[in-house]
Design a protein around this nucleic acid. Structure first.
Length: 417
DNA sequence: TCTGGGGTCCTAGGACCC
DNA sequence: TCTGGGGTCCTAGGACCC
């Protein structure tokens, strides 16, 4: 059986670990730039705070209800996530870490399965302070449904076994709440009179295939208990790496935008080098706000002469690509850099005409390693290329950020005894 | 005034080959 | 007047997920 362990309101729960006073209080965590709500406590949900809503629309609500507000502290959340996953690994060798707050594991179904789930839940709660919900079923898609049912129960556990009246339960599962069915598909299902999981499993395969695609068919099969998405225990290598940001204040000037793009390219290179990869091609994009007039978005890609993991070459290229898409008189609100077609750093295709002199100028691997060393030991802001933002940090607005309790010596919680 | 960031996969259509 | 059949590869755009 596939067991899905899902942390409840994960970011909110992380903040509460170090702030027990926040228990039972309404609490939200915001996206970068403190823009949108990305995690809500049950109390905040009850007040009517919607997922993804921009903060400026709920200022009054926050004030009136004394909702506690936190900026996102991903370093902290990642550390806590690692602890939760570490515990799960002791229960099953077959584990797939699906996201920062979810993992699938494989367990045998037996009489005391419920007890076993109960035990997992208690241990995680006790050792990490994170409350979780657990769903157990034959397939991932069913386990997803099970976990959503678990969240509505007091014990936070739900198992689909031979005794559960699945068909009946499916009548109350909106098609939109099925894993793999998003906004658009929901719309076309509704148009065809398909509103619930119950309706979906009574369709025929060819109709689904001709109106949707292979993925929707797989979802349908999974609902029927046929495994189409097995647990994937190995970490799939990344195919692309992105660094992008929204700007608090829109940017009009090419020179300023270029410095940001160079920063993004530098960070993107660093992330790629951590993964021990090289890239064959790079994309750069810039966008105005979609919420106002005078909309423009530019996107372009280009191959490298040969695949590279060289900071200087990548940053240089980012400027060249920006020139291609930059247009004057637009207010740019977001920009980003993507490294595509990643290969392993030690096995990659050479071009037919490699070793042109232009290659040699910047093929100083030892210099690249020194840059890595400085970043790893002294921090990301301690070394930059001259074309980057030297004056100030582009790190975004985080007005309500909590301390890095688990990763900075000087931010560790004080305990008075 | 103020609206996140990072991914993967599928498909239709175009361009090309014999 | 009538104009085949069988492929591959690439890309943009559109879905989906957390």
């Amino acid at each position: 059986m596939i067991v899905l362990i899902d942390c409840n309101n994960f970011y909110v729960s992380c903040e509460r670990i170090f702030n027990p006073g926040l228990k039972d209080k309404p609490l939200i965590v915001l996206s970068n730039n403190d823009g949108c709500v990305i995690s809500r406590s049950e109390e905040a949900k009850r007040i009517g705070i919607q997922m993804g809503i921009p903060v400026f629309k709920i200022r009054d609500l926050i004030h009136k209800n004394k909702i506690f507000v936190f900026s996102s502290n991903f370093t902290l959340y990642a550390n806590i996530s690692r602890r939760v996953m570490h515990i799960l690994k002791t229960y099953s060798e077959k584990i797939e870490i699906y996201s920062i707050d979810e993992a699938f594991i494989e367990l045998r179904l037996h009489k005391s399965s419920y007890k076993e789930c109960r035990n997992i839940l208690n241990i995680i709660q006790k050792f990490t302070g994170v409350p979780v919900s657990i769903g157990m079923a034959r397939t991932k898609t069913l386990a997803k449904i099970a976990v959503s049912l678990a969240k509505k129960r007091k014990d936070n556990i739900f198992i689909f076994n031979e005794y559960s009246n699945m068909l009946n339960l499916f009548k109350n599962i909106d098609i939109f709440d099925i894993w793999g069915i998003g906004k658009r598909y929901t719309k076309s299902f509704y148009k065809n009179g398909v509103y619930t999981a119950f309706h979906l499993i009574h369709l025929n395969e060819s109709w689904i295939l001709s109106n949707f695609n292979i993925n929707v068919l797989k979802t349908y099969m999974e609902l029927k208990g046929i495994v189409c998405y097995p647990i994937e225990t190995y970490k799939k290598p990344k195919k692309s790496i992105t660094v992008s940001r929204s700007f608090v204040n829109p940017i009009l000037s090419f020179d300023i935008l270029e410095k940001y793009i160079n920063d993004f390219a530098f960070l993107c290179s660093y992330k790629m080098r951590l993964e021990k990869k090289r890239s064959n091609s790079m994309s750069v994009f810039i966008q105005t706000s979609f919420y106002h007039d005078n909309i423009y978005s530019g996107f372009t890609s280009e191959n490298f002469f040969k695949s590279t993991d060289n900071y200087i070459e990548i940053v240089k290229k980012s400027s060249l690509l920006l020139v291609k898409i930059f247009k004057k008189k637009f207010k740019y609100k977001k920009a980003g850099v993507i490294l595509n077609e990643l290969n392993n750093f030690d096995s990659y295709q050479l071009p037919l005409f490699a070793d042109k002199p232009q290659d040699k100028i910047i093929s100083k691997e030892s210099l690249m390693c020194s840059i890595d060393y400085i970043i790893n030991n002294f921090g990301y802001s301690k070394i930059k290329l001259a074309s980057q933002n030297l004056g100030y940090n582009w790190r975004t607005n985080k007005e309500h950020i909590s301390p890095m309790y688990l990763s900075e010596w000087n931010e560790i919680l004080d305990v008075k005894i």
